[in-house]
Amino acid sequence: MKGVVFTELLDMVEGKFGEDMVEDILDDCELESDGAYTTVGTYDHKEFIKIVTALSKHSEISVKDIVIQYGHHLFFRFNKLMPEFFEGPKSAFEFLESVHNHIHVEVKKLYPDAALPSFKTHRQSSDTLIMIYTSKCPFADFAQGLIQGTADFYKDDIQIKTEDKNSDSEFCRVFTLTKQ
């Protein structure tokens, strides 16, 4: 998992809960990296799980909610950090459709070792987009937060329905997005 996901997470924690919370949760976790993250590094995704689990314990917010919220937060950060990806798409659907074939292709060019999830999309109707998340890592909630962030960013009123279709080999969540 790319370092930016960790640095942004810790920044968010610091912003929302204060510096002490960052130290508290890092103290709670045994991390191979010792919590010394850089945006350009690559780290074990299990460290992310450990951090959010510790945060949940300290903040009494469920892991699911934390991860969804963080996804939502990160979308807006991405918009600041990488504005070039936001130049083309004019709506949430258009943006989401560009993730798999454009954004992830570009990310791969910069970070050939990045393990990216798959985000296949197809439009069922002009108002409904099906987005299928598949990954080796259990971060469907994180994806959901990002999707919600997208909808809010573009100010599109979208209802999100989810259905998990995990298998032994990978995690899978089908998002049905319907414009209201």
Binding site: E19, E23, L26, D34, G35, A36, Y37, T38, V40, G41
Partner: peptide, 17 residues
Amino acid sequence: KRIVREKKARAEAEKLL
């Protein structure tokens, strides 16, 4: 602790760079 962490992160970033 934070300084130690930041130093380590910096060293790693420099190495990666």
